[in-house]
Design a protein around this nucleic acid. Structure first.
Lengths: 196, 196, 196, 196
DNA sequence: AATGAATGAGGATTCATTCAT
DNA sequence: TATGAATGAATCCTCATTCAT
């Protein structure tokens, strides 16, 4: 796909890891999908685990950049959060590009790669906390503990990402999650006229 | 623990699968923890995958029974939902009893066991939909698509369960999720006087 | 060959290691020769290196027992030494039984197994030193530093053992070594008319 | 070291082969030590085995030249033999220059390179036989089969060389071998009262 | 029913060799 | 001539599954 073998390997590994998880993903499969020889992978990555870690870092970096862009381009805090949620929920996010595998298969890998998670969570939490606080300042939200809530949302999005790798993308499921998070967005709003 | 070998194996398998995931969990470890010979496992279960499936079914059945009990014993729909959420979030739920492994490690296993999920989701969704509808009928909730929202919540709880197996139980994380879901519960409430 | 698999593996490993050296010897070859499955080897030995070490210990133990028996059964110190030398030189010693592989392929293996050598050398040196000292006491030998000489002989025999594994057993070579060591035995003899 | 790449490769290969043995020595290590690209080795040598063979030939040629020089420069046959023995025993002989790797790692390599040994043995044997015969003619030695004895000594020296590569140079060991060979030199001496 | 020794397919990793530049 | 990225065969080891006892 890419003429740069390192990138080709990284892309292929993202897909395979997301689809099969760490243990079941075989280096041979990754090599085949990347269109390189099995040994070539070891020219670019120390080990299978190092390759996974690189995938995770890359996925996280991309997700973070996207998040920043979304915050920048949406008019209101509510829209910013909705964009983030939909971004994380939508199935395309996970499969083909391999974005956000970060956690997807951490289920199985060693302690080393798990160390990455807390840092990733903090980075996204910081951004979302700022969004919430801006919404509070603007009188749009009423939230007692914005940092806690932001972190909770990040954790949920990570969870969703994990499970999304385990199942076929399914329209029903996505719609259900969207409906559920609309309720959550409602819960943020400060003033609400009686629904009626 | 149990003198019934089948139960002992099932219990042991639950713990090991939850801790290590499907591929990394070895039949030998399960046998050792169950206090039986490795070969004995195959007297009771067709294969490792069948054993996993049995664990998943058992975990689901237990979770479902607990859910029904919670609905029965809590006074209001809001309390019923909060109980369900806290039940799913609290770390004890996952580790020692092995409950709710259902999805925990489905990340890696074959198509066969994945087939279980939709049915499980439907069962929990049915119950929660009833709770929501009761809340709507009582004028406590205002939700446009209760079934969608219920299903979304179930999906989220499954996701949370998965990730809970991948990380150390951490008080911070749990509190963040609780705060996040309080917002969600707020979002359900129908009548809201203008705040202030 | 043997119905005890551990012994069969040990015997097979001895032959293969002696013939091919540590690295070139493959676990699969050893398994095939032993008539067991590849995996069975790991039931009895931690790793390839551990298997090698076990071979080395076994070979050394057998060689030591034989040495003691030779010392016991030969009438004079000279005969005892000659028996030891011939024993070490004769080609049968090395190939089929796998005796004395101890050092044969230590050429290539890790530090761990090399640690075994000094102890082995000391054990044989002790015995041969006693033989030399008995010869001196009996007025049969005249040797200034019996322990040094004994150790030197042991070292030589180890060397011979190594090379013996690298070449076809060859009658010529054996005879040459015998002739050479007859000179050495001569050199031990005490009575020598004043040189001129 | 040398600006001639072929020589640089040969020198580097000598050191690496001696230190690690044939299989464990990697072409990449040799290339790095020689300061050339990995592929360049194949411009000068057909294969790893051919490179090893060239090393062996070179080592043997150097050892043979040294032997001739020693014979030329020492006054008596006894001194000539002692010089040869000490030359072969001394640890410097083996490590840095890579001399006499000839056999050092033949343990592991294929039949092709093993074919070199007999010729090498014959060449050294010829020289040492001449030394012994000169000693006999001079009334200094009494040896029944000088050629056999000479060959035996050569074989021993090869063996010593092999094992020297496997162990740390150790003063104790060297002294023991020296003491042992002094006994052997004694055994060559002509005048000896009749045994008995 | 219960065992655990035995199996062998499968997977990560290494490295001699090739070849496009 | 020189390079080093790329290859894939070869190897050690793991582990689900079988089967003789």
């Amino acid at each position: 796909m890419s003429s740069d073998p390192r990138t080709a390997i990284l892309d292929a590994a993202g897909e395979i890891f997301v689809r099969y998880g760490f243990k079941k993903a075989s280096v041979e499969d990754i090599a085949r999908k990347a269109g390189v020889g099995k040994g070539s992978i070891y020219l670019h990555f120390e080990s299978k685990e190092a390759l996974f870690e690189a995938c995770a870092r890359k996925g996280h970096a991309e997700a973070l950049a996207d998040l920043k862009e979304m915050v920048r381009s949406r008019p209101t805090p509510t829209e910013q959060l909705r964009a983030y949620i939909h971004y994380c929920i939508r199935p395309q996010c996970w499969s083909p590009t391999g974005q956000r595998i970060e956690l997807a298969t951490l289920v199985e890998i060693g302690e080393q790669a798990k160390q990455l998670i807390p840092g990733m969570v903090v980075e996204e939490t910081d951004i979302l906390t700022a969004v919430l606080e801006k919404g509070i300042a603007a009188g749009e939200f009423s939230v007692a503990e914005p940092r806690q809530v932001a972190r909770g949302l990040v954790e949920l999005m990570y969870c969703v990402g994990i499970e999304s790798t385990t199942r076929e993308p399914e329209a029903q499921r996505q719609r259900a999650l969207e409906a559920c998070f609309e309720v959550w967005l409602q819960g943020l709003s400060v003033a609400r006229s009686p629904k009626g």
